[in-house]
Each structure stands twice: as C-alpha cells, then as structure tokens.
Amino acid sequence: MTPDVAPRRGRKGRRARDMGRIVGLVVFLGSLGMLFLSLLFAYAILRASVPVWPPAGEEPLPVAQPFVSTLLILAASVSLHFAGRAKEMAKRMSWLGAAAACATAFLVAQGFLWWTVWSGGWVPSTGGYHSVFYGLTAIHAAHVVPGVVWLLVGLLRTWRARSAGASKMPSLALVSIYSHFLAVVWVVMFVAVFLA
C-alpha cells in the first residue's frame, strides 16, 4: 500500500544530504552577515556624527586585551582547520579539544575585557562610544556561545564514533564554516572598534 519512500542510504545519499546542509548554512550565514553588517553600519553612522572619535571626554578602549581575544579566536579557527585535516580519530579529537578550549578562552577573555572597562566606570550609559563597544562585542559573543556548544557536540560525536569502532569520522564541515565565519567577524570588529 504505502509506496517505498525511504531515503537512499550510503555514500551518495550522505553526500547529497551534507551538501544540502552546507547550502543551508551558507544561506544562514548570509543572514548573520547582514546582522553584523548592520551593526557595523550603525557604528559608522554614530561615528560619522561626531567630529572626533572616541568622542571628547571618553577614554579610549584598551587594545592589548582584545588583541589577546583575537589571537585566541584565530587559534580556535586554526585548530579546527587541523582537526578537519586529521586522518586519525585521536588526532582529530585533540585538535577539536584545542579548538573548543581556545573558543572558551576567547569568551573568558571577552568577559574579562567587559569587567575591566565596566569597573573603570565606563558603563554602557556613558555614551555612544561605549554603547558600540558593549553592544557589538556582546552580540558577537552571543553567537560564539552556540559555536562552543557545537564544537563540544562534535567532540562527543567523534569520541562516540571511536568507541563504537566506526571507520568513518563525523563531518566537521558545518561547525568549521560557522566558526571561521565568527572568527572573521571578530577580526573585522577588532579592527573597526578597537584599532581604527
């Protein structure tokens, strides 16, 4: 009665499925990219409306601390790249673990950065300069959090595949694309908000 509508299994089916997911993720990153672009646009408009930046009376943001954050998120990206290239599961797991650790350290560094600025008396309501700082970095960090969770899920799945003795490693394509994207966004943000 019911026709055979089962999905095709095997290599070809899996490849088509993974391709579909990658297309979906790229479309979603288009959305996310527009979110960050409009935040940067907001920053540009605010900055263009005053003669000097940082505005008179506001203390420049620290540069060394966000530079450490930049190194950490880039380290996470590089580790993830090597995790994707690793041929053995043990090697992949250590690279994945390193990536998750670096990404977590990035979040901690950001928290420390907020704490430093905040405890210096520069709370969000002090003006547009610090609004931009808190707003943009917080929205970026809010997107890094699910990335860390995703990395840990990838780690767990690799570990389970290894304990089950599977020959095929779970794909890292999606989480890598997402993580590299957030790293690029951060580098742009670092240059635009802290250096420029």
Binding site: V50, P51, P54, G57, P124, G128, H130
Partner: peptide, 15 residues
Amino acid sequence: FGTTFFIAGSSIIQG
C-alpha cells in the same frame, strides 16, 4: 541596559 544608540542626549559632541 542603558546603552545610548538612539538617545541623542544633551549634546551630540558628547558621543
């Protein structure tokens, strides 16, 4: 959270 993206405040020079 008290940010001031859209609040002009007393003076635009104040950022």
